[in-house]
Write a protein that binds this DNA or RNA. Structure first.
Lengths: 141, 141
DNA sequence: TAGTGTGTGCAACGGAAGTGCATTAATTTG
DNA sequence: CAAATTAATGCACTTCCGTTGCACACACTA
């Protein structure tokens, strides 16, 4: 796991002031392998306020520490970016898998999004690829 | 355009009873080239109720007449399926493009979703690929 | 120490999806 | 044809999530 000093360094590296709340949320995200929703965080940090957690996640996204995931459930998910990620369309964007059974969304960071040839005059700025089905964990049970 | 008899046949072919409202909504969808939201339909049919329109679209999706599109705006969009579409994962699913400028979402039906090799034990049932950026219309203005 | 800026907590709003129920229209059946 | 059953529609209401405004608390600077 990570100690507080390491967590602080991560935040500082991305120009985010290391408050107590942010350190805890960062730790929570680091421990979670799957993408999490605001409600997930909220249920974990019962003593903190929803707004604070919401803005914490927002700060993380804006400072490129985490990325927002739209997995098609209608609920926004968040996951930490990989090292040196700039959410760049050609190199950083990866596939997300949403399991219909356990309802979890995971980042398949090894699966980059294939190149897409758009028709003339279309400019791509962002790509979102989500596969839905049964994940490996649920499938083996 | 389509006359009422043709519209009726489309509905009947998909086992949907051709009510007045359904015929009108179908016509509306046929005339729209881009994907539309419930609110779009609502604003057009001011005299009808939101719930009715909501359930009409739901009926269309359930009877494979239209497909639901999640374009990442958080608002569910709908578009008519192509002829003989069964929303099949390997043959029917196509790319959607959402323009950040005009806020429209179009189906790029010619752009099928490339095959994806998932890790072991993952089962794909549904795939959603959305590209965001500037569309051809906005780009040429 | 006073003052400024940032973070946090509380309350409330707004949009969209969805549900329950009563009413109306359509279809079947005696 | 009339009665009964089923389907569709309209209205009211709820819930859920994302978001904002405002006030208070804390930290850092002059």
């Amino acid at each position: 796991m990570f100690n507080m000093i390491e967590l602080e360094q991560i935040l500082k590296k991305n120009n985010v002031k290391p408050t107590a709340m942010r350190l805890l949320v960062l730790q929570f995200l680091l421990n979670k392998k799957s993408a999490i929703s605001l409600t997930d965080v909220e249920e974990y940090f019962v003593k903190s306020d929803r707004t604070t957690l919401y803005r914490t996640l927002k700060t993380f996204v804006e400072s490129e520490l985490a990325h927002k995931i739209d997995d098609g459930t209608g609920i926004t998910k968040y996951a930490l970016c990989e090292e040196n990620c700039h959410c760049d369309i050609d190199t950083d964007l990866h596939l997300h898998f949403h399991c219909k059974q356990c309802n979890e969304t995971v980042c398949l960071t090894d699966h980059k999004i294939p190149n897409i040839n758009l028709p003339k005059d279309f400019i791509a700025e962002d790509v979102n690829l989500v596969v839905k089905g049964i994940c490996n964990k649920c499938n083996s049970n």
